[in-house]
C-alpha cells in the first residue's frame, strides 16, 4: 500500500514547481484511481522508481498549459524542445523531492521526456495508478503515480 506521505511528496514536488518557477501556486484536483494506462497529454516527463517500490511516476501536461507556464517564466521560446525541457524540469523536481524524502528506500531514475498523445510509457500491466489532476490557472495537467 502506498503511504500518504509518499503520494504527498510527489504531489508537493509538482505543485512546488509551479509556485516557485511561475510564482503562482497550482492546486490539485480530485484524485482518482485507474487501472491500465491512463491517457496522457502532449508532453510527459517520466521518472522510473525501483527499490522498495517499483513503477513509474509521471507528469503529463497539455501544450496550452506549458505555453502559459513558459510565458509566466518570461520565456519567449515556445518550441517543441523548450516544451520538452519544461516537463523534464518538472519531473526533475519531483525526482529530487523523492530522493530527498525516501532516497534510502528508492532508486530514482533521471527523468526522461516523451511527447505526443500516444507515447509508450512502460506501465506494469495490471497496475492500478493514482491520477492526481494538477490545476493551474484554467489549465489542468496530471500527475500519475503507478507504484507497487
Amino acid at each position: 500500500m502506498l503511504y500518504e506521505q509518499e503520494l504527498k511528496t510527489f504531489v508537493e514536488g509538482t505543485t512546488n514547481f509551479f509556485e516557485v518557477a511561475a510564482q503562482q501556486p497550482a492546486s490539485i484536483g480530485s484524485p482518482y484511481l485507474m487501472e491500465g494506462s491512463p491517457s496522457v497529454h502532449e508532453y510527459t516527463g517520466v521518472i522510473n522508481i525501483s527499490g522498495k517500490r517499483e513503477g513509474v511516476v509521471y507528469f503529463t501536461a497539455p501544450k496550452a498549459m506549458l505555453t502559459v507556464l513558459l510565458m509566466k517564466m518570461q520565456e519567449n521560446d515556445f518550441s517543441h524542445e523548450t516544451m520538452r525541457d519544461l516537463v523534464g524540469e518538472v519531473a526533475n523536481t519531483i525526482s529530487g523531492n523523492a530522493r530527498r524524502d525516501f532516497g534510502r528506500d528508492f532508486v530514482i531514475s533521471v527523468p526522461s521526456v516523451v511527447s505526443g498523445e500516444k507515447p509508450s510509457i512502460p506501465l506494469r500491466p495490471g497496475h492500478r495508478s493514482f491520477i492526481i489532476p494538477i490545476n493551474w490557472r484554467s489549465h489542468s495537467a496530471k500527475l500519475v503515480v503507478a507504484l507497487a
Binding site: 523536481t93 525526482s95 529530487g96 530527498r100
Partner: peptide
C-alpha cells in the same frame, strides 16, 4: 533538483561553493 544530502555533500567535497535546489 537533486535534494538529497549525500549529493550535496559529494558536490561540496568535490569543490562546489554553494548549493541551490530547483525549482
Amino acid at each position: 533538483a537533486l535534494a538529497d544530502k549525500a549529493t550535496a555533500v559529494e558536490a561540496m567535497e568535490k569543490g562546489a561553493n554553494g548549493f541551490l535546489n530547483k525549482p
